[in-house]
């Protein structure tokens, strides 16, 4: 039988789940906002979405989202390893999503370091990071979409 991930009661389970979903949503939205597409394709013209065309705003919100997702992922990993591992295990799709997510986080961390004053990598590596970060996000969205449609959970009971 498959279960929701790693929580001992439903309330914190639900809170963590919503925080995760909202964070991923805004990270994806502001991440795509790093490309000059929202103004070109009229999305920023929709009332209330003008901020999507302001690169410094989307950049800042993306960083805020990164703070949240790093805290959340760290919490879930430790919680899984020390509290939940005897009861539940990661499914195959959980491993796939987790691996992609870690790739997104690692490439994102390198891009944050690049953005610091004095942070400089060879240009080829920066291009690799940019493409890898975007490619992994798109892969994650496809895999997450598949898992949502076919109801594949992150974890299952042992």
């Amino acid at each position: 039988m498959q279960v929701q991930p790693n929580f001992t009661s439903k309330a914190p389970n639900r809170i963590v789940r919503y925080v995760y979903l909202i964070t991923v949503f805004f990270l994806t939205l502001t991440g795509f906002g790093q490309m000059p597409i929202f103004k070109r394709y009229y999305i920023a013209d929709i009332p209330g979405l003008g901020w999507l065309a302001q690169f410094y705003v989307t950049h800042y919100i993306h960083y805020l989202g990164a703070v949240l997702i790093l805290a959340l992922v760290s919490y879930l990993i430790i919680d899984y390893l020390f509290l939940q591992k005897k009861r539940i295990r990661l499914t195959a799709s959980g491993y796939v999503r987790g691996t992609i997510l870690v790739g997104i986080l690692v490439s994102g961390i390198f891009l944050v370091l690049r953005n610091l004053s004095g942070g400089r990598f060879v240009p080829e590596f920066i291009i690799f990071l940019d493409i890898a970060h975007l490619g992994l996000v798109m892969t994650f969205l496809i895999v997450a979409g598949y898992c949502m449609v076919y109801k594949r959970r992150w974890v299952t009971q042992r």
């Binding site: 993306h62 805290a71 992922v73 430790i78 610091l116």
Partner: peptide, 17 residues
Amino acid sequence: QANNLTTAMALAPVAGI
């Protein structure tokens, strides 16, 4: 402004753990 959040990013895993 965004780079000032780097410290928060470095501390985020500590908070999660």
